[in-house]
């Protein structure tokens, strides 16, 4: 057992890093879908916007920690603006149901991806880790990239913050109340349009900032938007809609499967991801953290 752990330590750690990176993406997707009832298919494209922001500001050769923070700031502003805009354009379609809204966000995704291609070309770009986080450190006798440890730290802090915000703060209570009974929230004097815009903007902010965070690991390139969107959707399905906890554990699980699963069962690398999803859906149709009622609700209005 000890020997096994030692042999796979780096893989396990790496699964955690990858999972936490995916969490930043999936939690926004899950909140926007679970809470605001919009399946935002432009989430992957927004991640890519963040990745290209990191490429442009930090660069391939390497930048300071300041440049990295600047990239986060730029991506954050872009994310907030995109979220507000998306909330604005999807809202008039709310009565027509999920499909119309999802198609609209898909259209946005395609246009954004093409604009990025036009701006940055179709080349693969990488992003340097910020100064001080380059190179590798020893973890229990194994070499491990310092930046990925940083991602683990940031991811855990972020998960805690998102949890506190949604489950413990007043704003989070307003959001959950809005999910439960939108009219009633209006009747106590809250402009629910602002709540919608706020949740959307927060979710897309996490996506673009996730893109910056993931830049030094996954780089910036056409097609990455689809890849991360699919992983995000799998996590949302596995974790249960609108659940921060579900997104967290779903992301960690997918992280381990993508890394440890491939290490232990390399022949099944391509199959593991969707195999896991199918298995979980069979055992727990509403997802890891979902209750049947919660997932049934959004579906019934479409």
């Amino acid at each position: 057992m000890i020997a096994w752990l030692d042999a796979n330590l780096v893989s396990i750690l790496n699964g955690v890093a990858f999972g936490l990176l995916l969490f930043t993406l999936a939690v926004g997707l899950s909140l926007i879908f679970g809470m605001m009832d919009v399946l935002n298919l432009s989430h992957g494209a927004l991640y890519l916007v963040g990745a290209y922001a990191a490429y442009r500001v930090v660069g391939e050769a390497g930048g300071s920690l300041g440049a990295f923070l600047l990239a986060l700031g730029v991506a954050g502003v872009l994310g907030l603006a995109a979220g507000a805009l998306l909330a604005g354009i999807t809202q008039p379609l709310a009565r027509r149901g999920h499909l119309h809204q999802a198609l609209l966000t898909l259209g946005v995704a395609l246009v954004v991806a093409d604009l990025l291609s036009a701006l940055f070309g179709d080349e693969v770009h990488s992003v340097a880790a910020p100064a001080g986080l380059r190179g590798s450190v020893r973890v229990l006798g194994h070499g491990y990239p310092a930046y990925r440890l940083f991602v683990i730290g940031v991811g855990l802090v972020l998960a805690a913050l998102v949890y506190l915000l949604v489950e413990r703060s007043r704003a989070g209570a307003v959001i959950r109340a809005t999910v439960a009974d939108r009219d009633m929230v209006q009747a106590i004097g809250v402009d629910t349009r602002k709540v919608l815009v706020g949740v959307f903007a927060f979710g897309t902010l996490l996506a673009t900032c996730g893109g910056v965070l993931g830049g030094p690991i996954l780089g910036a390139q056409p097609g990455l938007d689809d890849t991360v969107l699919i992983l995000g959707l799998v996590i949302v399905v596995i974790g249960g809609l609108g659940s921060v906890k579900g997104a967290f554990f779903g992301a960690l699980l997918i992280g381990q499967i993508q890394v440890l699963g491939v290490t232990l069962l390399p022949e099944y690398a391509s199959f593991l991801l969707f195999g896991t999803m199918a298995l979980i859906l069979t055992l727990r149709p509403a997802g890891l953290a979902g209750t049947a009622a919660r997932t049934a609700a959004p579906g019934s209005s479409g």
């Binding site: 007043r170 209570a173 959950r176 109340a177 999910v179 439960a180 009974d181 009633m184 009747a187 809250v190």
Partner: peptide, 20 residues
């Protein structure tokens, strides 16, 4: 408004119902 059927926010605690 105190609506018919009361419509308290089911997933929120009493405290949260009031705070928001």
């Amino acid at each position: 408004l105190v609506p018919q059927g009361r419509r308290v926010f089911a997933p929120l605690s009493v405290e949260e119902n009031l705070r928001i």
